[in-house]
Design a protein around this nucleic acid. Structure first.
Length: 629
RNA sequence: CGGGACGUGGCGCAGCUUGGUGAGCGCGCCUGCUUUGGGAGCAGGAGGUCGCCGGUUCGAAUCCGGCCGUCCCGACCA
């Protein structure tokens, strides 16, 4: 059966930023015509109707969805779990991902970056050359592997620095070809030990990864900044609130790194941000600005009897003239090193501070740190727990202190004998200043380096930029001749954005008790036109007209012509989160519709033409080249 | 990988402690009639190897063992 359709009229060719590159493939008539269908008035495309689409909303989320974003996306039918950390992206969610990708392309292309595509399957050899095969397959086996029938080993790309260096090595020979940025938007595979929170942490995900190439460090730093600037614009355009923060360079190796963190209750990271505005860092690397306590008059070191004083609070009365800033805490840890060995580490910090175990692990090169148990403490300190100090520790204990302890003199510390402490201890005079590192755990209210006060916020990492230096270019032979004719390794940078995670973060930030509230720029459709009562001639005619006008105005609109009760259609529209709802109801015969803004629920009754122009104006502000339509 | 929990029609759950009585409830789905501005009502109907394998038993969704899968909390990342 074929549906009656007006004779196709030629649409004028389109041009400009919103141009459509092709008409969507039409489905076989029998399928498409499941319900009534009309072609676009004056157009040659089938009208987009929800009655022709799979809308699989449900009241309840699947039992194993705990993250709000996972629950809502699943309830909206935009998502289906295929396995642990594996998700099928439904048609509506795919549109959102494509919009995000369009914004990313737009910002990258504006900087002159070039898009390309690396292979997913990568031979072992380049990974060997960069020294990462062992790291990524054994130490932290995040790379999935396979073998060809001939026996060649392949890794399923978790990232592409090696390939990026190799690709450029073939074409780049002179500094005159630089700076240059290549990027791709493609699937990454990571054998995550523990997928989590729906789309926030998966084994397979889409990533935009970019690689920058510069002749020297100065130029590389400038490129890095330009990309970081693009990242801020990308997230802002996508409607996501993010903070740029100093970050850990981590396993990637490099010299500078920043993360883009989207504040959200479910985030796995904490940003320490200063209220003075110029300092922001992931707590993994954040530093509080600690002022050195004034040194007291120099006196010889002495022992104080401190029965039962195993905590700062109980110790204070025994040394009433010494503030906590002038004490040195000694905490003992059992540490497992990368090679599988074990050592005992004494971590020192100021009495008023505490140790960040992540920082300690990093500083000691440990894969695991655990507070020492009582037996271990007795062996290391010859005392009961609570009386450890740097003076007279067992010889096999590695001592490492936070930077701040170097500024403390004439301090109080544990006596390494039960019920005793030492006071008036001076570095250099009574005990050698140990190895120093950043071990300090920052907390809400700490003084910030820029003079403000730090506060901690939970956040989702949606982007990460690294200035890599020459590690990969040296390993893989990527060099460029300088103006002096001498070949030098190219400076590289690496820049990633997790696409699905970004979408999930947007949902985490933009939802209410009814469902998702997509920002216009990334909504699967900008507007839904709802007929209150399918089959009502006035409503159908008006809805069809309005939908057509919206499409003609380059607004991504869809008509909910399903023969369902209005409550169902309203609830679905709110759950899926279309920014605008245009309702053709009681006043349809008079050419008036209700215009509802999803974010606030605000509704006005307006003439249909006014509704169209209002929505078109919002769409125009958020339009991106190459957006899906 | 350590710790905790779960697996019963498409989805959410009860039943299991104390083995046996027609495997049940809500949502969804199908048919018919009525209804039509906030997830309709009535009537009828379809749909389940109770994750898998093995054991105990006259008899197992239920007890025991193993395996698989999934989620949550901890060590990692976009």
């Amino acid at each position: 059966m074929r549906c009656a359709a007006p004779a196709p009229a030629r649409r004028p060719p389109r041009s400009g930023p919103g141009a459509r590159s092709h008409a969507p493939g039409a489905l076989p008539g029998a399928f498409r015509c499941r319900t009534r269908r009309a072609s676009r008035p004056g157009g040659d495309e089938p009208m987009r109707r929800l009655s022709n689409q799979l809308i699989a909303t449900r009241r309840e989320p699947p039992a194993d969805a705990s993250a709000v974003s996972h629950q809502l996306l699943a309830r909206a039918g935009m998502l289906q779990q295929a396995g642990a950390g594996l998700f099928t992206v439904g048609p509506l969610l795919l549109r959102t991902l494509q919009r995000i990708e369009a914004i990313i392309r737009d910002e990258h292309d504006a900087l002159g970056c070039q898009e390309l595509r690396f292979t997913h399957l990568q031979p072992r050899e380049p990974w060997e050359a960069s020294g990462r095969w062992q790291t990524l397959t054994e130490d932290d086996p995040i790379m999935l592997r396979t073998r060809t029938r001939a026996g060649a080993e392949l890794g399923l790309g978790p990232t592409h620095e090696e390939q990026a260096a190799l690709f450029a090595a073939e074409g780049v020979s002179s500094h005159r070809q630089l700076p240059m940025v290549l990027y791709q938007i493609a699937t990454k595979f990571r054998d995550e030990p523990r997928p989590r929170s729906g789309l926030l942490r998966t084994k397979e995900f889409t990533m935009k990864d970019a690689y920058s190439y510069d002749a020297d460090e100065t130029s590389a730093a400038a490129t890095y900044e330009r990309l970081a600037g693009a990242y801020e614009r990308i997230f802002a355009r996508a409607g996501l609130d993010t903070l740029r923060a100093d970050a850990d360079v981590g396993a990637m190796g490099g010299t500078m790194s920043a993360e883009f963190l989207a504040p959200a209750g479910i985030g796995e990271d904490f940003v320490a941000a200063s209220d003075a505005g110029s300092y922001r860092a992931n707590t993994e690397v954040a530093r509080a600005a600690l002022t050195a306590p004034p040194a007291p008059e120099e006196r010889p070191m002495s022992v104080v009897e401190t029965p039962g004083a195993t905590t700062m609070e109980t110790l204070a009365p025994f040394v009433p003239d010494v503030p906590a800033e002038r004490m040195v805490k000694t905490l003992l840890y059992g540490v497992t090193t990368a090679d599988g060995g074990h050592e005992v580490v004494a971590a020192l910090c100021r009495g008023d501070r505490s140790i960040d175990e992540d920082k300690l692990a990093k500083a000691t090169g440990a894969t695991e740190v655990a507070m020492a148990d009582a037996d271990l403490i007795r062996r290391a300190t010859h005392a009961d727990p609570g009386f450890a100090g740097p003076v007279g520790l067992a010889g096999d204990v590695r001592v490492i202190g936070d930077h701040a302890i170097a500024d403390v003199q004439g301090f109080v510390c544990g006596g390494n004998a039960t019920d005793t402490h030492r006071r008036d201890v001076w570095w250099g005079r009574d005990v050698a200043l140990p190895e120093l590192a950043d071990l300090d755990r920052v907390a809400d209210g700490d003084p910030a380096p820029d003079g403000g006060t730090l506060s901690l916020t939970r956040a989702i990492e949606v982007g990460h930029v690294f200035l890599l230096g020459t590690r990969y270019s040296e390993a893989l032979g990527l060099t460029a001749a300088g103006p002096d004719g001498v070949e030098r390794p190219v400076w590289m940078g690496s820049y990633g954005i997790g696409i699905e995670r970004l979408a999930a973060a947007i949902v985490e930030q933009h939802h209410d008790d009814k469902g998702i509230v997509w920002p216009t720029a990334v909504a699967p459709h900008t507007a839904v036109v709802v007929t209150v009562r399918a089959g009502d001639a006035d409503q159908d005619a008006l809805a069809e007209q309005v939908t057509g006008q919206l499409l003609d105005a380059d607004v991504d609109a869809v008509w909910d012509d399903r023969d369902a009760r209005p409550g169902v259609k309203f609830a679905d529209a709110e759950l899926i989160g279309f920014p605008w709802r245009i309702t053709a109801g009681r006043e349809a015969a008079a050419g008036r519709v209700e215009l509802t803004w999803r974010a606030t629920g605000e509704t006005e009754v307006v003439d249909a033409v006014d509704a169209v122009s209002r929505v078109a104006e919002d769409a125009r502000r958020h339009r991106v080249r190459q957006s899906p339509r």
